[in-house]
């Protein structure tokens, strides 16, 4: 109690951040197949965490094995930073006619969307860093969610015989090929988010052959 009070006086957080923090309780009690997961991907102006900015965020949320399409999230952000080198991959030219929102508005919607869900991303560290940078710019703390990187997870699913010569970094394309996932809308945030979700489900089913998968094993990095 004292702690909570102490925390609050230290800094005046906006309501949406406090709401977000409240979601994290009793996490490990929920079985894996009843837990809400959010697979997401960000498209950015480049790979420099300080200089570059997030242009769009795509996410799909799911519990069990069903992904409802109308519950997916697709955000386009207003940014002044512009990097002509990466425009071509992302096809997100600054003037393209989609509705754009401010970074603050976007992070508000994103936090409300993810709540305390377990986040899944490919090369998760990069996406996590980019989101955390946004939070920092607006004077907020870092993401509290548990993360699963699909590349790391895939390595766990390989048979022991091949452990010694595993690739260090599987690209999302590699995983699509290995797991036979159709590459639809590759290199857009929501397209990659959906592919990541399917890659995750397929890998999970390979790991969970015995139907007794534990959180500790799943979250171990």
């Amino acid at each position: 109690m004292v702690f909570k009070w102490f925390n609050r006086s230290k800094k005046d957080y906006p309501d949406f951040w406090i709401d977000y923090l409240e979601h994290f309780e009793n996490f490990y009690k929920t079985p894996i197949h009843e837990t809400r997961f959010v697979a997401f991907d960000t498209e950015t102006t480049g790979f420099d965490r300080k200089k570059d900015r997030v242009l769009s965020v795509g996410a799909v949320a799911f519990t069990g094995k069903s992904i409802p399409v109308n519950k997916s999230l697709e955000l386009y952000l207003e940014q002044d930073v512009f990097n002509p080198e990466t425009v071509e991959i992302h096809e997100l030219i600054k003037s393209s006619p989609v509705e754009r929102i401010s970074e603050l508005e976007a992070i508000k919607i994103f936090l409300d969307y993810i709540k305390s869900s377990v986040l899944i991303a490919h090369h998760a560290n990069f996406d996590r860093t980019m989101i955390n940078e946004i939070l920092s710019r607006h004077g907020l703390g870092h993401l509290k969610n548990r993360f699963i990187d699909t590349g790391t997870l895939f390595n766990k699913s390989k048979h022991i015989i091949y452990k010694e010569n595993l690739k260090k970094h599987y690209s999302l394309d590699d995983l699509c090929l290995e797991l036979n996932v159709p590459k639809v809308d590759r290199h857009t945030a929501s397209g990659d988010a959906l592919i990541t979700a399917i890659v995750f489900l397929k890998t999970l089913s390979r790991l969970d052959k015995r139907k007794n998968l534990k959180w500790s094993y799943l979250l171990r990095t």
Partner: peptide, 13 residues
Amino acid sequence: MKNSIAERVGDFL
């Protein structure tokens, strides 16, 4: 809001 995933589902159907 734009929903690209729905568009791709439509493309398939």
